[in-house]
Simulated assay, not measured.
Amino acid sequence: MPWLITTVAAWVILILLIDLKQLKYTFWSGLFALLCQLIIDNMAVHLHLYEFKFTIAKIIHSALFFTVGAPFAIGILFAQTYPKNRLMRLIDIIVSTVLFFIMEYALNFIGALRYIHWGYLYSIPIDILALMSMGNLITIFKLAPWMRKGNA
């Protein structure tokens, strides 16, 4: 049930904040975030670093409802709000990492995520690198609205 709740919360936030005119671009960032999450979690579960509990359905060792919820929605919103200013990009990554940390802590606290050979602090560099990679993808493919002509 906790995974379904995270999905519903993520989709409510996404629906409230999404710019539908930009979705044909920002969708790809959401897909990239979803794929990153699946790859990282698949490796972590395979290596017995942590495991998912209370899953209704799984996709490649990950909680399906989490995968199609938070990572996908955050990826879309990250591209939609990706700042021009480099300092603001750094602040965006730090704030997003803190939010991921809080969500992971809460999921671990309620028992939906069980650490085996993992700790909270290990996730911080993973989150930072994933967000930096997503920023590179956004820049390379011009997924942020301000990066395309006529959207300045």
Results as ranks from 00 to 15, higher is better:
Ala79Glu: 02
Lys142Phe: 04
Ile124Phe: 12
Trp146Glu: 08
Tyr82Ile: 00
Leu129Trp: 02
Met103Pro: 00
Gln80Met: 03
Asn151Cys: 12
Ala152Gly: 07
Leu121Ala: 14
Ala79Thr: 02
Lys58Ser: 13
Ile94Tyr: 03
Phe78Trp: 09
Asn42Gln: 02
Gln37Trp: 08
Val12Asp: 02
Cys36Ala: 04
Ser96Glu: 06
Lys24Gln: 12
Leu113Cys: 13
Phe32Val: 13
Leu49Met: 12
Ala63Phe: 01
Phe101Tyr: 15
Ala10Tyr: 14
Lys142Asp: 04
Arg89Val: 05
His46Pro: 00
Trp146Gly: 10
Gly30Glu: 05
Ala63His: 02
Ile91Leu: 14
Pro2Glu: 15
Tyr105Asn: 14
Ile59Leu: 14
Ile5Cys: 04
Phe141Thr: 04
Glu104Met: 08
Pro145Ser: 10
Gly135Val: 10
Leu14Arg: 00
Ile40Leu: 10
Thr67Pro: 00
Ile5Arg: 03
Ile76Lys: 05
Thr139Gln: 13
Leu17Asn: 07
Glu104Asn: 12
Ile13Asn: 02
Asp127Pro: 04
Arg86Asn: 09
Lys21Ser: 08
Gly119Tyr: 11
Thr67Ala: 12
Phe27Pro: 00
Leu23Ala: 09
Met132Cys: 09
Leu34Asn: 06
Asn108Val: 07
Ile110Leu: 09
Ile56Pro: 01
Ala33Tyr: 12
Lys24Glu: 13
Leu137Gln: 11
Ile94Gln: 08
Ser133His: 10
Leu35Arg: 05
Thr139Trp: 12
Leu90Glu: 11
Ala10Asp: 06
Phe54Glu: 06
Gly150Trp: 01
Pro71Ser: 09
Leu16Asp: 03
Phe66Arg: 00
Phe101Thr: 15
Thr97Trp: 11
Phe54Lys: 07
Leu143Tyr: 07
Leu34His: 06
Leu16Cys: 05
Ala63Arg: 01
Phe27Lys: 03
Leu107Phe: 05
Ile94Ser: 06
Ala79Leu: 03
Trp118Asp: 12
Ile116Gln: 13
Tyr122Val: 06
His46Cys: 01
Ala112Gly: 14
Ile124Tyr: 10
Ile126Phe: 10
Thr6Pro: 02
Tyr105Asp: 11
Ala73Phe: 08
Leu20Asn: 01
Asp41Thr: 03
His117Glu: 14
Ser133Leu: 15
Leu99Gly: 01
Lys84Ile: 08
Ile56Asn: 13
Val68Trp: 12
Leu143His: 06
Leu14Asn: 02
Pro125Gly: 09
Leu16Val: 12
Gln37Asp: 14
Ile60Glu: 08
Leu16Thr: 05
Leu17Phe: 14
Phe109Cys: 07
Ala57Ile: 08
Asn108Arg: 10
Ile93Glu: 06
Ala63Gly: 04
Lys58Arg: 08
